[in-house]
Every structure is written in structure tokens, then in C-alpha cells.
């Protein structure tokens, strides 16, 4: 199969004596998307921060074990962590533009690594803004502050900034949790495109996102590695009861569907309106299944339904174009 890119070997981490990661050993495949899932506080972000050693910045943290990236142990004392970090782009939970212009945000990384020539920097800025689909939107105002962009644009800028230092790995820490559905979708599409050149590790609490993106899944629970493996195997047939329970929190395979609505061919927001109408006719606690084919609806309808106080039980791709969304009133 494919190559191993990151090898995590018996990693333990403690926050002020609190055991945050317990004997984690797992291998991450090259040029694949690996999703780290699990409930809040299970150590997902800690594991990610170990990989680029940003964990060093946290007070009162100790860790042990080995993380090998290209066979170099990044926990070793003699390792030059600055060079290791250069190999890894980071996409944080919310977009954090540096306090400078759009242009300088992208040029910052290449500049500190020694690219001086203006023409080279120009080319880099254009290349990576194009790669994340932001070029057309910002090319007329490259010198305005990055903070003036919308949140979704900022997050794509941050992605481009991370890519501009030519990393091999992209680490994402819940990269869409602060974004609206359309921007989230944009980022997800970018990540799928980038998979062919980069190893991507994404921490997410959104299991639907993990299903849409991941090739491999790592399930953490209270600092322990519960299960890991190919995404479709883990999602469809988890070996561990805890993984099954976690996934079933969102998935209930033997649901009794009370009503079904086919909303294929309906665009947003009409599919949402129809779904609401269908729900209106049901009693509380009854279950409605809808089929949609508008990609926007996949994120938009569940979000809207949850905002209205309904419970979204399943969001599942059933074939190439169609998605199934199951909602409990």
C-alpha cells in the first residue's frame, strides 16, 4: 500500500499531571487524509500539537515517546524543530491572519526562509492564492489588511500561507468550525484537491466531515487510541464498541422512518423549506428522511434543522450525487 509518513510511537502527554495522551501509537499514510475524531477533550488537538511541537508553548506540559517524520524523531533533543515545522502547514480552528497585508501574509513564510527577490515573491503569492481559489477575489487589493477579508476568505488565505512554505504535511485543527457552510465546503474541497500532493491530518468533531474527507480515521477517547484504520471500514463496521457508540451517537442504523421526502433537483433554500413543511406534518419524535442532491444542502439543511431545534440523526452519501439526511422532530 502507500508509504508511512508520520509514525507516532508510544506517545504520552501530561498537562500539569493530567494524563492527556496515553500510549498513542499509530502510523499516518503519505498523501492521504487522516481524520482524528473523538469527543471534546479526548486529546485530538494535543496529538496534533505534538506533531509540530507547538505543544512546547503550553505551560506545564510534559511528553514522551517518539514521533518520526521521514524517519526523524521530532521529539529528539538534537532535532531542529524550526525545520520540522516548515514541513508542516497548520490550519487552525479559526482563521488567524497575521497583522499585515494579504500579500505579506503569503510572502511571510517564504521571506523568513530566504526568498528575497520581489518577482519570486510575487509569483509565490499568485500561485498559492490561485491554488486556494482566492486570487480572483483579492488580486485588486493585495496590499489591504488581511483582516478585512471575510472569515471564509481569511481561512483560505491561511491555507495558502501554510502552503507557501512548501510543506509536505497539512495539519488541520477543526478548520471549518468557525466558518459558514459555504466557506466550510470551500475548504473541504480544497483539502480533497490537495490530497494528491500532501499528507493531511485533520482533527474534527464533525463526523460527517470526517466521512466526507477521510481515507483513514483515528478515534481517540479520553486520551486513548480506541481504533484506527481505513475510514470506510471504521465507519461501516467499527471493531470497537466505543467507536460504534460514538458513531451511533450520530448514526442510528435501525431507525424507523416515519416519512420520506425526495427533494432531488430542489435547490437551497427550497429543499430546506420543503423539509420543514414535511416535518410540520409530523408529531414530535417522529423521523423524517430526505434525499437531496444539492451539495449545499448537505451542510445547510442539517445546520438549519438543528438551529430550529430538531435532531439530525444521519447525513450520509448514498450514491455519487445523492445524500440522505434523517431528521427527528
Amino acid at each position: 500500500m502507500s508509504e508511512i509518513h508520520i509514525e507516532i510511537d508510544n506517545v504520552n502527554a501530561y498537562y500539569n499531571g493530567n494524563h492527556a495522551l496515553k500510549n498513542i501509537s499509530v502510523k499516518i499514510q503519505k498523501k492521504q487524509i487522516t481524520a482524528i475524531i473523538g469527543p471534546s477533550g479526548c486529546g485530538k488537538s494535543t496529538l496534533l500539537k505534538c506533531m509540530n511541537r507547538l505543544i512546547d508553548l503550553t505551560d506545564g506540559v510534559t511528553y514522551s515517546g517518539k514521533i518520526l517524520i521521514d524517519n526523524e524523531d521530532i521529539f529528539a533533543r538534537k532535532t531542529d524543530i524550526v525545520n520540522i515545522r516548515k514541513k508542516m502547514g497548520l490550519l487552525a480552528q479559526k482563521p488567524i491572519p497575521l497583522p499585515m497585508s494579504i500579500y505579506e501574509n503569503i510572502a511571510y513564510g517564504p521571506k523568513i526562509h530566504g526568498t528575497k527577490k520581489k518577482s519570486d515573491l510575487d509569483a509565490i503569492v499568485e500561485k498559492y492564492l490561485k491554488l486556494v481559489g482566492l486570487w480572483e477575489e483579492v488580486k485588486g487589493r493585495l496590499n489591504s489588511p488581511a483582516s478585512q477579508l471575510s472569515l471564509g476568505q481569511q481561512q483560505r488565505l491561511c491555507l495558502a500561507r501554510g502552503l507557501a512554505v512548501e510543506p509536505e504535511i497539512i495539519l488541520c485543527d477543526e478548520p471549518t468550525s468557525a466558518l459558514d457552510p459555504v466557506s466550510s465546503q470551500h475548504i473541504e474541497q480544497q483539502l480533497l484537491k490537495l490530497k494528491k500532493d500532501y499528507t493531511i491530518v485533520i482533527v474534527t468533531h464533525n463526523i460527517h466531515q470526517a466521512m466526507r474527507l477521510a481515507d483513514y480515521v483515528i478515534h481517540l477517547y479520553l486520551g486513548e487510541l480506541v481504533e484506527h484504520g481505513l475510514a470506510n471500514e471504521v465507519f461501516e463496521n467499527p471493531k470497537e464498541e466505543r467507536t460504534r457508540a460514538y458513531i451511533n451517537g450520530i448514526f442510528s442504523p435501525d431507525l424507523k422512518i416515519d416519512s420520506e421526502e425526495n427533494l432531488k433537483g430542489k435547490m437551497c433554500p427550497y429543499n430546506f423549506v420543503y423539509a420543514k413543511q414535511a416535518l410540520h406534518n409530523l408529531e414530535d419524535g417522529k423521523i423524517l428522511k430526505i434525499i437531496v442532491d444539492d451539495p449545499l444542502a448537505v451542510t445547510e439543511v442539517p445546520r438549519g434543522m438543528e438551529a430550529d431545534g430538531h435532531k439530525v440523526l444521519i447525513v450520509k452519501q448514498i450514491n455519487k450525487k445523492d445524500w440522505e439526511i434523517v431528521i427527528q422532530k
Partner: peptide, 24 residues
């Protein structure tokens, strides 16, 4: 702290981070 993390994650040293990001 996020701002410092961003700069460090791009492979900047501590001095570069302070000079170009924090002080700015």
C-alpha cells in the same frame, strides 16, 4: 498565543516571530 503559533508553524524562529508578528 494563536498568532505566535501561526508564525512558528511556518518555520519562523522565536526571534523572527517576535520581530515580525508580535511587535508588529
Amino acid at each position: 498565543q494563536d498568532m505566535r503559533e501561526v508564525s512558528l508553524s511556518l518555520g519562523a524562529t522565536k526571534r523572527q516571530t517576535i520581530k515580525h508578528v508580535v511587535l508588529r
